[in-house]
Simulated assay, not measured.
Amino acid sequence: MLVCCGLLTLDVVQVVDHLPGPDEKVVARSLDATFGGPAANAAATAVALGVPARLVAAVGTGPVADAVRADVVAAGVELVDAVPARRRDAVQPALSTVLVTAGSGERAVVSTNAATLGDLARGRDADDVDALLGPVGPGDVLLLDGHLAPLALAVARRAREAGCVVVLDGGSWKPDAPELLALCDAVVLSADFRVPGVPVDDEDASGRGSDATLTDVARRGPRFVARTRGARPVEVLHDGRRSQTAVPSPRRVVDTLGAGDVVHGAFAAALCAGEPFAAALERAVVVATRSVEHPGARGWIEAGAVG
């Protein structure tokens, strides 16, 4: 079983020929509205790969919440609303507007901030947290995306006590990152992840960067730290040993939206299946490469390109 804890959004995705400049209007080639968020996309990825997944996220009530909830359930993900019943009328999923550039598949994202939902752990006792986490134990995996941090910390502590593997999707540095990292067994960082006070890694001619960021993150607790860099090899620091994992070349790049989420979901799914960290990462980058050949974060699933 995989439990994902973090952000659930409504994504409004438009494909454009180019990003608009100041005071410019552009006409979209297509429009789609569906659920998104790192934890949500990761959960859907795991289900597509045959691993049951539960998503712990802020849902709330109202038309947006109803639409997102129906979409998540249709993807086969068990959805648990982390918002206490007494507060649900005041909460709805965050909204993200995504512009995907036709031809390159690059995307630009504008989203509302879910930080105001970060106090969902307030007043929770152990039984409440256990109800969110569900019946987990050794062999199960908890994936955090860094959002809803106080809630994520409470869930991670219980997961560690239950013997779960705890994984962090390190999209960017957040104030609670040190506490989260201390609870993690594995972390997969994005290229944009920066540790305050740690120099930005330089690259040599081979594309290999210095390991300042990986080393700093590893010393905070995780045994396995990786950093994705788009089409370039993934940098890895595992039990003090540094290596790289090659990223296969896609046949074409249609859309990079959600590719990082797919990496995290596929990585966690492989861990649930008993794969060691290195093998799980190798499997994950293959799945993510397949995903960018299709539109949207989950177009590859709808196209039957699961493998």
Rank of each mutant, 00 (worst) to 15 (best):
S104K: 07
V200C: 00
A268S: 15
V287Y: 05
D89H: 14
S111N: 11
Q14R: 15
A70H: 13
G163R: 12
E106Y: 00
V129C: 07
W300S: 02
D211Y: 06
A85F: 00
A280T: 10
R242Q: 10
D23A: 13
A246Q: 11
L183D: 04
V16M: 13
V91L: 12
L133V: 13
D201I: 06
T112D: 07
C184S: 03
S210M: 04
D17H: 14
L49E: 05
V217G: 04
V72Q: 08
L49P: 03
V56K: 02
L55K: 04
P63K: 02
P196E: 07
R208D: 12
E282P: 03
G171K: 01
A58F: 05
G139W: 05
G134F: 01
R194C: 09
L31I: 11
G36C: 12
D255I: 04
R251T: 14
T34Y: 12
V225M: 12
V234N: 07
E293N: 11
G304P: 10
G103M: 12
S104A: 05
D119W: 13
E302L: 13
R229Q: 15
D17A: 14
G146S: 07
K25W: 09
L79W: 03
A48H: 01
A266T: 05
G230K: 03
V165C: 02
S291C: 08
D17L: 11
P295E: 03
L151R: 01
A74Q: 13
A126T: 15
P84G: 09
E235N: 02
A131C: 01
Q14V: 14
V91D: 11
V247Y: 07
A280M: 12
A231V: 14
A126R: 15
A279K: 11
V166T: 13
V253P: 09
A149S: 10
G134K: 00
V254E: 11
S30C: 02
L168R: 10
D140W: 06
A273E: 15
G209I: 12
A57K: 09
A231Y: 10
D17Q: 14
V72F: 08
L2I: 09
V12T: 15
V253L: 08
A42Q: 12
D204A: 13
R219E: 14
G304E: 11
F277I: 04
F35D: 08
G123V: 03
P248H: 07
P52S: 05
H18K: 12
A246R: 13
L153T: 09
P196G: 05
T256E: 04
E282Q: 13
W173C: 01
T245V: 15
A268W: 02
D81I: 11
A152V: 01
G197I: 07
C184L: 03
S111E: 11
A205G: 12
L153M: 08
A159F: 05
G139T: 04
